[in-house]
């Protein structure tokens, strides 16, 4: 793993900045949410950067209007407020319109999972994957590192559908090294091939599954790691082909379990393709996190850190 840490939003906005220099059909709309890189963009493109104020509903509605007139729009806000305050705007104006019209709104939510750890449960985002997955016609991108985030720019411009882009709030390591190692349309990558056990994760948690697999390897257990970055659409056939020979699949997500998130995606594919594997879910139980502390601490007390994940596998799956 490369150790250069960057925020997904800054590398992505930097790419948008350069695209906006060449392409006048790109707008960037923010619900009063920033980033160091955004300062440069809003200074340079005063006529195509708009701050709608703390108004996520209008963020989506204005973005829709611009997109219906042919603009490519990036709509930018804090993830839980974007996906939950403006859920109906996303449903009515993006999901419904996109069934028969081009609506290229890329709505970027920053602060996936427990990114905003100390800020508490209003800022934790444990529901977004589940609820956005329920909407037809929306692409759901959940990158695990900044290389994926950076590489998504061409897809975001060329595919004229609404996309929920789910970014971590913290600087994050580079997993993939280069975007050339990624086939975006597959929706996932088996980062490490294992025997019997495969850990499946998305976003930040892929860093945890990689570490857990390393820990297990020291004990002679070869667990696979599979990173899902495009939850919708995903190459189902390839996904099933990749996973069918494992005995156990373990989903690990910074989300509530059993509510249609990553575990729901994997579970439905197991059923649909009649896979003979056992699924174990790891994530947050059905309650909010009021404990105060950093992300690693919060993961640890909820048994979602790499040591706890490795221990769970050793204690329950290895006989």
């Amino acid at each position: 793993m490369k150790t250069e840490r960057k925020t997904m939003r800054d590398v992505f906005i930097d790419r948008i900045f350069h695209m906006m220099e060449e392409d006048e059909s790109i707008f960037f709309i923010s619900a009063d949410f920033g980033s160091p890189m955004l300062d440069k963009l809003r200074d340079k493109f005063k006529d195509r950067f708009i701050n709608v104020g703390i108004a996520e509903q209008n963020l989506i509605n204005v973005s829709t209007g611009l997109a219906l007139e042919g603009f490519t729009v990036y709509a930018y806000a804090i993830a839980p407020f974007l996906t939950m305050r403006a859920f109906e705007q996303i449903r009515i104006n993006l999901s419904l319109h996109a069934q028969f019209k081009d609506v290229n709104v890329n709505f970027i939510g920053v602060g996936a999972g427990l990114s905003y750890d100390v800020s508490g449960p209003t800022h934790h985002c444990l529901e977004d994957i589940s609820i956005i997955r329920t909407l037809p016609n929306i692409i759901l991108f959940s990158p695990s590192d900044w290389v994926l985030a950076q590489g998504f720019i061409d897809y975001s411009i060329n595919v004229k559908k609404p996309k929920y882009i789910r970014f971590d709030g913290k600087p994050i390591n580079n997993i993939y090294g280069s975007f050339e190692n990624v086939k975006l349309e597959d929706g996932f990558k088996e980062i490490k091939k294992g025997n019997e056990i495969c850990l499946i994760s998305t976003g930040y948690m892929t860093h945890t599954t990689i570490k857990a697999a390393d820990t297990l390897a020291k004990d002679g257990i070869n667990a696979g790691v599979l990173d899902v970055f495009l939850l919708k659409p995903i190459n189902e056939n390839l996904f099933v082909e990749t996973l069918k020979d494992y005995k156990y699949l373990i989903t690990l997500e910074e989300a509530f379990m059993n509510k249609g998130g990553l575990d729901g995606l994997v579970s439905s594919l197991i059923d649909e393709y009649d896979l003979k594997v056992k699924l174990k879910r790891m994530g947050f139980k059905d309650s909010y996190v009021f404990d105060i502390g950093g992300r690693e601490y919060l993961h640890k007390i909820n048994n979602l850190d790499d040591i706890s994940v490795a221990k769970y596998i050793k204690d329950t799956l290895i006989k």
Partner: peptide, 17 residues
């Protein structure tokens, strides 16, 4: 409650163009 916000986006788009 959706129409006016979408119309704002359309109006802005037409102005920019």
């Amino acid at each position: 409650g959706h129409g006016l916000g979408v119309a704002c986006g359309i109006s802005l788009a037409l102005k920019r163009k």
